[in-house]
Nucleic acid binder design. Structure first.
Lengths: 189, 189
DNA sequence: GAGTGAAGGGGACTACAGTCCGGTTATGCC
DNA sequence: GGCATAACCGGACTGTAGTCCCCTTCACTC
């Protein structure tokens, strides 16, 4: 018998079932038709729930995308907090910065359309979610010698916006982007 | 008698009249109620034209914003091409880069909501318009010693995205943003 | 296992961006 | 000045994000 509860114990059974159904339906539809081409009506219908339910659970389109990315995001955060260096603790700051931007770029390229949706539907979404705060805090800590670590961290995250990477990818290709980011991370004091 | 034609001679009189009416109405409504709160239906009604006309002329919401910003944008481009240094030609590259990011930030802070609308309604709009190409080309020229001038120019423009500045403004205030950008522009090789 | 309070469900509803096409008007030529 | 034609006009139409609120269903108590 399954007694393990990953969520706080107050989520009702029907709610959990619907949450899972929505995530699964969204994942399937996005994979099949592309993120852009799928409307939330379709997701709701495919999941067998009403539209109201979908919005109640996920707030808006960017919230749904964020929920779908949650697992991958957590994995990266784990690797940063307690994985092996240079991504995890133990390496010099500059190397950890480089490792971070490269790992984040990998994550981004793997899920570009979805991250883009999570950042762009709903204005300012990127900067509101907890994950951005996490990346920003991490980089701030790794920039103790900068004149304004908080600003430098934002400036290093700016070219990692999904919108920016999407626009630059056809022009420069992933390798130049990766190299440029690494240079930036190493030298940005 | 007015013989001066600023546009190529093929724009019909009614088209020109409607163009002006739309721009004036949009400008007035945005000033009065805020950019976010005004719908294009309202703009069309206020200008006394149909919706179809509005979209025919300006393509979409971001096109309308771009048209409203056109004059200010051109002024900045003029100053860069032929104004006095350090913004115009004559000063060392690093100083010109700093002058550019500061001047652009001023422009941005003056018209933040409008620029944001021009960049965010319609995905990828920021990178498609001619103006972005202009700024990018200008910075590329000013970064001859960078390992990848084209990428560095993009990276320096990234923290000048309206979305980013909007998010950082309440947290850091304009002065820290300005100082951080200037540092970045000076040292970004 | 029946009652009860609250959380959840769902679909009709609104508002808005963007499209389309039949009718209209300006312009250039005779 | 009249005519042909191409450009333009405008509002009805579509599809989508997001809201609202009444009804259902769960979980907890006795």
């Amino acid at each position: 018998m399954e007694l393990l509860r990953t969520r706080p114990p107050k989520e009702r059974a029907d709610a959990a079932r619907n949450r899972a159904a929505v995530l699964e339906a969204a994942s399937r539809l996005f994979a099949e038709h592309g993120v852009e081409a799928v409307s939330l009506d379709q997701v709701a219908k495919e999941a067998g729930v009403g539209k109201g339910t979908l919005f109640r659970r996920f707030g808006d389109k960017s919230g749904l995308a964020t929920a779908l990315l949650d697992a991958r995001e957590r994995a990266l955060q784990e690797a940063i907090l307690s994985g092996p260096p240079p991504l995890g603790p133990g390496a010099p700051d500059a190397e950890r910065r480089v490792a971070f931007v490269e790992a984040y770029l990998d994550y981004l390229l793997d899920h570009l359309a979805l991250v883009r949706m999570s950042e762009t539907s709903s204005p300012g979404a990127r900067y509101r979610v907890g994950a951005y705060r996490f990346w920003h805090h991490h980089l701030t800590i790794l920039l103790p010698e900068a004149e304004d670590p908080a600003y430098s961290a934002h400036a290093l995250l700016a070219p990692l916006a999904a919108e920016q990477v999407t626009a630059l990818l056809p022009e420069l290709g992933p390798d130049r982007i990766r190299a440029g980011l690494a240079r930036l991370a190493r030298t940005c004091t």
